[in-house]
Design a protein around this nucleic acid. Structure first.
Lengths: 230, 230
DNA sequence: TTAATATGCGTAAAGTTTACGCAAAAATAA
DNA sequence: TTATTTTTGCGTAAACTTTACGCATATTAA
């Protein structure tokens, strides 16, 4: 088989974070090169001898220094035939969740700048990154309703009201607090701690934690987390 | 940015068909080349100036001559670093449904042979194609429960019992005929025709057809087809 | 002390799923 | 012809889930 292919293959990571009722996205701005001064997703070209996921983890480490909580392949984008003038690029996009946007981002290097943006107020993005982000957001919304990935966006211990607000914010939907609590507790994947959160006023609330062991057990049994509510 | 990347990018298509209570998969056997005498998925390398989906459609046409009813991206496989001795290959897999396995496959060419196999009795496959097929089968099972793609595996007009059998076969699950019919009819996406199917014995059954217009309308409204049943 | 705010428990009505009974229409066998 | 078998198609009651919402409790602010 003759093969003179001139396509390069890259990875991009959509990193979501959540803090103070806001869904955030991690973007970088390159100081040199094709992307100079444009905000873009974390990403880069795959090396000949690394797996795709290793390329994503390497780029995340190199460009931002963060450690993600959840990572899955999203979609492969390759319809934009001339995004780069030198050659065609096909990009495998990954979808990542981190449990704090307070994580120390790699100190501004000479090469680039990393920053959290609210999903509601994104800057103009390089290439087709706006489309990729929209796809990632839809996946996040869908996945949230049948897999408890919301916990990967929260600290180890959290208030029920924080979890509830996360669902409200991401799904852009009103939720009945009492029914939400009942349903989440019925899965048996969160448990109370002895500690209390320090809210300004109102009755103090217990901190809860996610029970990953129980979650893995239920998942293996094929249990479905149908998280729908009014 | 320096870039000396030596990875080639390919597409593979998992084509599912259904006939006589059997889920089938379309495979090809190449007579020459790296794949000589091994059964493999339809696929090939992407050309520099075609979109990924165009590459899939071109390969389907060239290698089998069939026209598919449904096509969506499945996953990008790229962890097998030395599947081809000449260079690394990353493959974007697509998932396809056709409404008849009686479609005329491209006449055995000098280069290859195309054939339908029952999903239950697959031959040994080239590369990591067994893993890809397993992933595709899981996607088919999942998708069947929340999107009415079963119709894309049946002829334009079908018996309710055929639809029911399709669900039983693919989901590998008992279904209560009466509850199944009630639920599918409640969506309003199938309608009776005046015609009857010709079964050997028993009460003759009406032929039904899928109402795509109604389906598109409901889909736009965000309606969910929750096809679960006992 | 009173008002405001947020937590946490409970319960009834509405809706959905499950389980299953049975009549009708045809082919086949007796 | 008549009974038997097969498959279709309609209906209904019990079990379960979701929705809607009332209200006591624990704290801070005024």
């Amino acid at each position: 088989m003759e093969l003179e292919q001139n396509i390069k293959i890259a990875v991009d990571a959509i990193v979501f974070g959540y803090s103070e009722n806001s869904l955030n996205v991690l973007l970088i701005k390159q100081k040199y090169g094709v992307l100079k001064n444009q905000w873009a997703l974390v990403g880069g070209f795959i090396k000949d001898n690394e797996t795709i996921i290793n390329a994503v983890n390497r780029e995340l480490k190199e460009e931002t220094g963060i450690k993600v909580n959840y990572l899955e392949q999203l979609y492969t984008f390759g319809d934009d035939l001339d995004r780069d003038p030198r050659f065609r690029v096909i990009s495998v996009a990954y979808f990542a969740l981190v449990n704090s946007t307070k994580l120390i981002l790699k100190a501004d290097s000479d090469a680039e700048d990393a920053k959290w943006f609210s999903f509601a107020e994104l800057p103009k993005l390089a290439f087709d990154h706006d489309i990729i982000l929209k796809t990632a957001h839809q996946r996040l919304q869908n996945k949230l309703t049948y897999q408890p990935i919301g916990f990967d966006l929260l600290p180890k211990e959290f208030l029920f009201s924080e979890l509830e607000n996360l669902y409200c914010t991401i799904l852009d939907k009103e939720i009945d607090r009492r029914n939400f609590r009942k349903k989440i507790l019925s899965f048996g994947i969160v448990e109370e701690t002895e500690k209390f959160g320090n809210k300004k006023n109102g009755r103090p609330a217990k901190l809860f934690k996610f029970n990953k062991l129980k979650y893995n057990k239920l998942t293996k049994e094929g249990f479905l987390f149908d998280i729908n509510f009014a």
